[in-house]
Design a binder for these strands. Structure first.
Lengths: 206, 206
DNA sequence: CTATTTTTCTATAGTTCTATAGAATATCTC
DNA sequence: GAGATATTCTATAGAACTATAGAAAAATAG
């Protein structure tokens, strides 16, 4: 029962995480059973426990897989010294692209992470907070430099970006023909200028 | 096993729906068991089946309870003949107020409705679509009258409003001290003017 | 107070699911 | 190809949960 590290193990474990992501996304953590996951991998239910100690461990790995990349991506954006608009666009791009690439894991992170055992949930929460904090910082900076209005509350603004990305991420997932680039553009435009503003419309277009 | 209609029955059934809402919100549909719901009502597990034929029926009632009011509210807003800004504010107010009043049922609707049996899910979906359609119409009208920019896609805009309300609804639920009125104001202001616009800031304030 | 109806209880059949143990097969190393 | 290691399989113990049946208790009506 010991695990060495021939690459097959890590490859199969990754496959297990993806299978779990798909199944959890469809049926929810409690609605899914380990048999579903195993079947999707082409192995038997019991064999799954070669890769995970428990169903909850699988959930933890899926959640981590869902956000690790885009949290790390945010580190780069926050420290990039770009303009506010550029940072916002980069954030939205990164977030929405994740929905194309790993929408299942992301959905699981959003909907099921609260079923994780305490310890693991705390670790994940740290990642989420880092992301949110960096996003808030971007707004604080932009307010200082006058790019963003004083009346905007950074905490709400960050939440607005995240909420918008999640909502439009849903659209992307449901409609795979949707042009990602166009969605990103619409999203940032809307966030920056709102529904009614007209001053930048021309330069924003195209 | 027949049910007449002494008011006690309807009263208790409503209590059962609220209990189910709380439990489903906390543990998810599959994670919750009928015992949890019954206990919260102060009755035994088996007795719950006097009010529901199945766990799924309970879920259906909770979901309906979660959105019926604010969908109906939207009917009034859509046909009110108010200005775009007023309609948007009313929409946001209605949606966010729901989070204060029945956040549990709303959360259940958002997260668990897909576990409903087909027939019931379709009926609920109709309600959701009506809401969304009316919101889109508000944007179409506002675009025609020039209040909202041409470049805004009504479908995305509607999704943006819903997404924003859901995201900020989370904040409201997590932080009960938050001033609802202030949140509503911030939300509509942000949607209408965006992060950077300054032209209306003064009139928007207060 | 008695008869009737409504509500709740107890007990359980039948199902499903997680996690483990130990055997069997596949893969690797020399 | 023999021996060691890694991976998968079968089978199942043990726990939990839904839904039902029928008895008991509570409420209501005449």
């Amino acid at each position: 029962m010991q695990k060495a590290n021939p690459e097959k193990y890590t490859r199969q474990r990754q496959a297990a995480i993806r299978a779990a992501a798909a199944v959890f996304a469809e049926k929810g953590f409690h609605g899914a059973c380990t048999k579903d996951i195993a079947e999707r991998m082409g192995i038997k239910q019991g064999s799954l426990y070669y890769y995970f100690d428990s169903k909850e461990e699988a959930l933890g790995e899926v959640c981590l897989f869902g956000i690790r990349d885009y949290v790390e991506h945010m580190d780069g954006i926050a420290s990039s010294g770009q303009s506010f608009e550029a940072k916002l666009t980069a954030t939205v791009t990164s977030h929405l692209s994740s929905y194309r690439e790993r929408n299942e894991a992301l959905k699981v992170y959003n909907d099921e992470r609260l079923y994780l055992p305490e310890a693991r949930r705390r670790r994940l929460k740290k990642l989420g907070s880092r992301y949110r904090q960096q996003l808030e910082n971007i707004f604080d900076d932009a307010k200082k430099s006058g790019t963003v209005r004083d009346t905007i509350d950074s905490r709400f603004a960050a939440q607005a970006v995240i909420g918008m990305c999640n909502a439009w991420g849903d659209l992307i997932v449901r409609d795979p023909d949707l042009d990602l680039f166009k969605v990103i553009q619409n999203c940032t435009d809307l966030l920056i200028n709102g529904f009614t503003d007209t001053k930048n419309t021309e330069s924003q277009r195209n």
